[in-house]
Each structure stands twice: as structure tokens, then as C-alpha cells.
Design a binder for these strands. Structure first.
Length: 585
RNA sequence: CGGGGCGUGGCGCAGUCUGGUAGCGCACCUGCUUUGGGAGCAGGGUGUCGGAGGUUCAAAUCCUCUCGCCCCGACCA
């Protein structure tokens, strides 16, 4: 940072703007949201849309700068794309229809379809197809830090899930698979460094690729109980995945022993018995002797998905297995149409639509299913004899009884906040938008892409979620709006004010971000605010100490404080600051 | 989009059922005292009761419509 002198005046609390709340605003549910409001970092304008107040903006900028440094170090090049985008491009990529209602669309004065960019694959690919023709121009990786807009169904948790938010997005372009993999690895490494430097406890987990599409991806999850995403990790090896993606591999996936004889099929009268619980208790069987038949609509085609009674369907996995764009559970009317029975009585026997089954079902014999007729279930149903499925696949949610898909050891469930996501996109967008290059043989191929996002505001929120106590935020120093705060407790005592000013000026001269709380407030108020905002290093200057030439230095993260002579305070503080940074390397 | 809830001073809320001059705490302003963990006393200002329409002698309160926000669900980086 340059121009330190200009900042000096702004770092006096009396000239600053950091309006704090004593009370918890009722609208805030999670701790990071409450604390950011209370600490005067953000204010809401409307649902999911926030103003970053000066202190909040400082934190945001700190994260942005860390991202910038690491992206640049990884060889990515910064640019800035427009927030407003022509619908035409989205129609060309096919996402105008598939992106859904989060894409905020409107018409300009010429009645042209227009949208606010929720992401920038289309725009960057359009740029690249116009500018890059040869393998010699690659690899290249462009990134930007920019405001995105996604018209979320339900914004919540402050900056954690806003509609308007700041995101770093990067897009890599390579001439071959090996290069694309290197680009991906470089971003994976950069992300690890970024979150490490932000002082976050995080984990990279394998993830589903979702609406953006593509072939391979990792999510960077900040570990937090209040996280919106569930994930699993192996207690032994380093396998970790989000719940949608978590693979299941076990002996149950193998065909069962052939020596269990098939019993004759039996019809069971089950009046108004619909749910798995009702059926199993009515027929006195365990849940794993039952097969659930779930009817879904995959790209307008009805498909039946079979999973064991005690298992849950994983729609993301099913979507991938079926290679579908959109998948949703069928409505009661659609279920009735497909099974000629109300919901609760669907079964695979004599079902006319496409059927796929979970791997866990392969070994099952003599199980119970719905009978495709009101109040009817079937007992002793067997695959092969009574019905056949088109294919088997891993289409269920992982459970705590499952073991690690890689090494077979125990897995653990946890929650996290997704702060970053890296995708290997492949050629999905380059093909759709015709971003073609000539290789060294003079042959045309689509460029191989990757895309890489980081939620900047979400990263700040996640840091707070992970670092706070009953008094407020305990900022990791790289993310804190200020590195140091000085509290002169008696503004009418010249010795106190002089000592505080002296230390303040010395720290400024040494390029430390310091906030001097020169308000004419009582000591308690200054302490409470300093704790609430979570500035990592606190210098307290009181009358008694000043008379003896001492000030008190305390870390926000530690309970104890230490007295230091006024003349040594600046050097002592700078050393503390350095150590706090060093601890995150 | 479905279900639930809430809109009363800057913030947190009471008052609404049972209509009758709009209140409390915090914050804010003035004065005095106080002064190392969100001070005390005294005085003061602060409201289109989300908006529109209706019922009524009279509406924050009852009725209709509408807007906004929050929570749960589906969905999603």
C-alpha cells in the first residue's frame, strides 16, 4: 500500500465511520452475520444486498489483495469483464434456458435480452475465441475480482449467501489435457495458499460439477458447524467429498449369492400404508428388505429410480448417471400417470418407464416393493424374474454406516462453508461458443478450459464464523480491517494522549494498519468496541501507566496482557504483528 | 413457489385479542457529577404505527388489497 500519509487522518476513530451495535439485530441468524452488522462492517440495503461500510470494505480488500498476490504468483492475469451481458451469448452457450431463475434477465431500451452476470464463462470464452487462434498463445489464465449477481431463491446469512456478491473468478485455457491439468493443479495450489494465508481451517473436497458443467472439481470448504454444505472425510486417508459427490463402494455393490432361493411372488393388501416406516412395520420387515421406487422427471422423460428402503436417493448422482440436464421428483399427477397408483405404491414390476437401480440393490432377494395399484404391495419380488432395470449405478446418499470409497476405513461427517471452487471444464463452452485453435500440426481443436471461483465476502464471513467468542470477532490478522488498535483511555490526560499519539505515528510510519480510538468515550466503551471488531493487537494507554511510562499490550486471541515502556511499544507491537502473520505461512 | 411469522422513533421491543390523546429499554442532544470493561442524575428531541382503500363519532388496533422483511422447505457457487 502506498500513500500512507493520506490514510493517517482516516485512522482516527473520531474521523472514521464504524457504527457499532450493542444489541443483536433480529434479522441476523448466524454469528458472522450478527457480528458484521454489530461491528459496523455491513448494512443491508434489501434482501441479499449489502453496503460494505468502511471497516467491512477494508476486510474485503485485504482478502482481495491476498487473492491477487497468489493468482499473480500462479501466473494468472487480471482483467475486468462487464457485469451486464447480452442474452445472445447465453443463448449461444445454451445456458439462457438452463441456468434457471437465478439469472436476472431484463430487456434494454432496444428490447434486447440482457442479463446481470452470475458468472463469466460466456464472456471470457467470447473474448478468447476472438483473440486466441494458436496453441502458441496458450496456456493462459485470466481472472477478475468483480461483483456478481445471482437472484437467489432465498438469500440468507448476510454475506454468506447474498444475491449481489464479490467474487474472484478465473478461467484457464489450454491446448491439451496435460496443460489443462497443470492449470488446474496451479489453481488448486494457489487456493490452498490463499485460504492458509487468510487464517482459515479448510479442506478441499471432491465435488459435483452442478450447473456450470464440466468433468472434475474440488470445493474448498471452511470447516464450520453453521456451514450450509455437508461433507464427509475419511478418518484414515485424505479422501474428502461433499455429500452430493461422496462415492460409495462396498461389498453390497457386488451381486449377492445365488444360493438363496427365490420365493413365490405374493400380493399384500396394504390399505393406506405408504411410507417406508408404515410398510416395514405393517409387514414386520426391516427397511433394508424394502425397495423404494422413486419417479423422477429427467429432461422431460419419466424415470424410475430404485433404492433400498433405508437409503436416500442422491439426485446429483442420478442426474449424472442419466446424463440429464435437469432432474426433479415427479409430481403426484405424473406418478399416477406412470404407475397408475397414488404416491406410495410405486414398484418396478410391470412398470413401463425406464428404470435404474442403486448398486446396493444388486444382491437383494425376495424383497418388498409397491404394487403399482392403490393399497397394494408385493412381497418376494426378485430381479430378473419379476422385472429388469436398464442399468445399475451409485445413486444414493452416503450414510454413516458406509466406509471410505478409497481405503475402506471409517468416514466422518462434517459441515463447511464453500469459499472456493475449482472446475476442470473441458470443452463444454469452447465447443458451444466455437473457441477453436490450431495446434502444432495445423489441426483445429476446441480450447480446453478450467474455471475457478472464490467468494470474497463469503471468505470474510467464514473467517468470522471460525474465529469469534462471546465478545465479538477474533480476526486472523490478514483479514482484519486493522492490524492494531490504540486505546487512550483518558482523552483529557495529556500524558495519555501524547503517548498514544507517539505510538500511533510510529506505527503509521512503519506501515502498520492502526486505528487510534481518540473518541471521548469511557474506557468500557472502547474496550467493548475493540473486542467486538476483533482487531488482533490492542495497545491500551491509561493514566496510571502513562505516568510510569508504560502501556499495556494485548492480543485479541489471548487473555493476558503485558506492560511495555512507551518507547518500546512500537517495536514490540510490530514484532507481534509480524509473528501473527508468520504463524499463517 | 409452498408453509409459518413480522412490519410501531436509529436499534431491540410492548401496545393489536377487547377501537378512545402512541409507550418502554438502548441510542441521540443539553447540563452537572463520573472516568480501566457498554456510567449516574436531571432535562430534551425523535414517530406519515410499511402503504392504499374501507368500516366507525373515533383505527396502530377491525375489514380488504398491496409492498417489504425474516424463518422452514424445494433450489444453488
Amino acid at each position: 500500500m502506498g500513500k500512507r500519509e493520506e490514510l493517517v487522518i482516516y485512522m482516527r476513530y473520531s474521523n472514521y465511520f464504524m457504527p457499532t451495535y450493542k444489541e443483536v439485530p433480529s434479522e441476523a441468524e448466524v454469528i458472522s452475520h450478527q457480528l458484521m452488522l454489530r461491528a459496523g462492517m455491513i448494512r443491508k440495503l434489501t434482501s441479499g444486498i449489502y453496503t460494505y461500510l468502511p471497516a467491512g470494505l477494508r476486510s474485503i480488500k485485504k482478502v482481495e489483495n491476498i487473492i491477487r498476490e497468489e493468482m499473480n504468483r500462479a501466473g494468472a492475469i487480471e482483467l475486468l469483464m462487464p457485469a451486464v451481458q447480452p442474452g445472445e451469448l447465453w443463448q449461444e452457450s445454451g445456458r439462457w434456458e438452463y441456468y434457471g431463475r437465478e439469472l436476472l434477465r431484463f430487456k434494454d431500451r432496444h428490447n434486447r435480452d440482457t442479463c446481470l452476470g452470475p458468472t463469466h464463462e460466456e464472456v471470457i470464452t467470447d473474448l478468447v475465441r476472438k483473440e486466441i487462434q494458436s496453441y502458441k498463445q496458450m496456456p493462459v489464465n485470466f481472472y477478475q475480482i468483480q461483483t456478481k449477481f445471482r437472484d437467489e431463491i432465498r438469500p440468507r446469512f448476510g454475506l454468506m449467501r447474498g444475491r449481489e456478491f464479490i467474487m474472484k473468478d478465473a478461467y484457464s485455457f489450454d491446448a491439451d489435457e496435460a496443460g489443462a491439468n497443470r492449470s488446474y493443479e496451479a489453481m488448486y495450489e494457489a487456493y490452498s495458499r490463499i485460504f492458509q494465508r487468510c487464517g482459515l481451517k479448510f479442506r478441499a473436497v471432491e465435488a459435483d460439477t452442478g450447473a456450470i458443467g464440466g468433468s472434475y472439481s474440488h470445493e474448498f470448504m471452511v470447516l464450520a458447524e453453521t456451514g450450509e454444505d455437508q461433507m464427509i472425510n475419511c478418518t484414515k486417508c485424505d479422501y474428502a467429498a461433499n455429500l452430493e459427490r461422496a462415492e460409495i463402494k462396498g461389498e453390497e455393490g457386488l451381486p449377492g449369492p445365488d444360493n438363496i432361493p427365490m420365493k413365490p411372488l405374493k400380493k399384500m393388501y396394504t390399505p393406506d400404508i405408504k411410507t417406508v416406516e408404515e410398510v416395514t412395520s405393517f409387514l414386520d420387515i426391516s427397511e433394508d428388505q424394502l425397495i423404494k421406487t422413486l419417479i423422477v422427471v429427467a429432461d422431460n422423460e419419466m424415470v424410475a429410480a430404485l433404492v433400498r428402503g433405508d437409503h436416500e436417493l442422491n439426485e446429483a448422482k442420478l442426474k449424472n448417471l442419466l446424463d440429464a440436464q435437469v432432474i426433479e421428483l415427479a409430481s403426484p399427477e405424473q406418478v399416477a400417470e406412470a404407475t397408475s397408483a397414488p404416491i406410495g405404491f410405486a414398484g418396478p414390476v410391470d412398470l413401463k418407464i425406464k428404470m435404474v437401480a442403486d448398486l446396493a440393490i444388486q444382491g437383494m432377494k425376495n424383497f418388498v416393493t409397491g404394487g403399482n395399484r392403490n393399497d397394494l404391495h408385493l412381497k418376494n419380488v426378485n430381479m430378473g424374474r419379476d422385472f429388469n432395470v436398464e442399468r445399475f449405478g451409485d445413486i444414493r446418499m452416503i450414510t454413516s454406516r458406509d466406509s471410505c470409497a478409497r481405503c475402506g476405513e471409517e468416514i466422518r461427517f462434517g459441515r463447511g462453508i464453500e469459499v472456493g471452487h475449482v472446475f476442470k471444464l473441458g470443452t463444454k463452452y469452447s465447443q458451444a461458443l466455437k473457441a477453436i485453435f490450431l495446434d502444432d500440426q495445423g489441426k483445429e481443436s476446441p480450447i480446453i478450459m478450467g474455471c475457478y471461483g472464490i467468494g470474497v465476502g463469503r471468505t470474510v464471513a467464514a473467517a468470522i464464523e471460525q474465529n469469534h467468542d462471546k465478545d465479538g470477532i477474533i480476526f486472523p490478522i490478514p483479514v482484519s480491517p486493522f492490524e492494531v488498535t490504540i486505546l487512550p483511555l483518558q482523552m483529557h490526560d495529556a500524558a495519555v494522549v501524547d503517548a498514544a499519539e507517539k505510538i500511533y505515528k510510529e506505527l503509521i510510519a512503519h506501515h502498520i494498519d492502526v486505528l487510534l480510538d481518540d473518541r471521548d468515550e469511557r474506557a468500557g466503551v472502547k474496550f467493548k468496541d475493540a473486542d467486538l471488531v476483533g482487531i488482533p493487537v490492542r495497545v491500551t494507554v491509561g493514566s496510571r501507566g502513562a505516568k510510569e511510562g508504560q502501556v499495556e499490550i494485548k492480543l485479541r486471541s489471548q487473555p493476558e496482557s503485558i506492560n511495555v515502556p512507551i518507547g518500546e511499544a512500537s517495536a514490540f507491537v510490530r514484532d507481534k504483528v509480524k509473528k501473527l502473520y508468520d504463524s499463517l505461512k
